[in-house]
């Protein structure tokens, strides 16, 4: 990849989000890399490890109670992405704290824990417990509040679309998180995202992650019905990149809070577009499902660009 003249950032140099440093600016996105590769051994000839150069792994979202997730089918591949309706399947917060968090402590890469809930006080109590459990875990960097997952029935995609709700959730989490990063992940499914970002910033978050998936639906022409049992899901992948870039630009220019860019980043060139708009870091989502080394390869390509 050709090195653009304006590109001076070292994505593997330590930088700060919240009170602590992270080792890199390319992360894996929530829901696309589970809790890292526990129990797996995946190798490639051109790169050391799926974690090489990665700044953080954002976990699959954890909810207060275990969730079995949505009925199958859960994925619809589109020409430029995919619509998912996984439904936040996860083991629940209690099992996460007891079993998953200790496993994450063994990873060489920092962890950002993604949390979802339906009420601000649930965010508050989860963050308080997480803080108690993770206080001595040096690689626990912080929390990403999933305020925007479009395929959870209770709340749905409207949950994170009111500035008041966003502010209440961020404030509840912030009050229990004095010394780790707090990131609010926002929905793109609103006319204007800057008011949400401003509310989150005002309530004390350290950065905004944008965007989550775009509400989408596909129809099975054989049946005439939506492919997904819940009709709509979250559209991700290359097709949402222009939407993501527009929403990121709106936040960066109007709110001035650090932004972690997400949305259809497949390659180093895609990542550069987000950095060009002022993102402090980026996350790799759908591409990571196709390629366990996707984020690491983006780092590798950005490194080549700097030499």
């Amino acid at each position: 990849m050709k090195h653009p003249h304006w590109w001076t950032l070292d994505v593997e140099a330590p930088f700060t989000i919240g009170p602590r440093e992270l080792p890199g600016r390319v992360w894996t996105a929530s829901g696309c890399f589970a809790y890292g590769l526990t129990g797996h051994d995946i190798a490639a000839q051109d790169i050391d490890s799926p974690y090489a150069g990665i700044g953080a792994v954002v976990t699959k979202t954890v909810t207060p109670q275990p969730r079995p997730g949505n009925p199958m089918p859960r994925l619809v591949e589109m020409p430029v992405g995919a619509i998912n309706s996984i439904g936040l399947e996860n083991v629940g917060f209690e099992a996460f704290i007891a079993e998953t968090l200790p496993a994450l402590a063994e990873l060489a890469v920092p962890t950002v824990v993604s949390l979802a809930a339906t009420r601000p006080e649930e965010f508050g109590s989860m963050v308080a417990e997480l803080h108690a459990a993770g206080r001595d875990m040096p690689t626990w960097h912080g929390v990403e509040l999933n305020l925007s997952c479009p395929n959870v029935a209770e709340g749905g995609h409207d949950f994170g679309s009111s500035p008041e709700t966003v502010a209440a959730c961020v404030a509840a989490a912030r009050s229990h998180l004095p010394d780790r990063a707090l990131i609010a992940k926002l929905t793109p499914n609103v006319a204007r995202v800057a008011p949400l970002a401003a509310a989150a910033a005002e309530a004390g978050c350290d950065a905004i992650a944008a965007i989550n998936t775009v509400v989408g639906l596909d129809v099975d022409l054989k049946t005439g019905r939506p492919v997904l049992p819940r009709r709509f899901g979250g559209f991700s992948g290359a097709g949402i990149r222009p939407i993501a870039l527009a929403k990121v630009d709106e936040i960066v220019r109007e709110v001035g809070i650090p932004v972690v860019g997400i949305g259809g980043i497949d390659t180093a060139e895609d990542a550069l577009k987000f950095f060009a708009l002022g993102c402090v870091a980026i996350q790799v989502g759908t591409a990571q499902m196709r390629d366990p080394f996707a984020a690491a390869r983006i780092v590798q390509d950005l490194r080549r660009a700097e030499s």
């Binding site: 696309c32 589970a34 590769l37 997730g69 998912n84 399947e89």
Partner: peptide, 28 residues
């Protein structure tokens, strides 16, 4: 059908009994 094939996306789940035959519980 699978998304990732390596355990991260939860797009290929199947229902299994929790404690073998006779148990009414299940998980993905």
């Amino acid at each position: 059908h699978m998304g990732c094939g390596y355990g991260v996306c939860k797009g290929c789940v199947v229902p299994v009994r929790l404690d073998g035959p006779g148990d009414s519980g299940w998980r993905n």
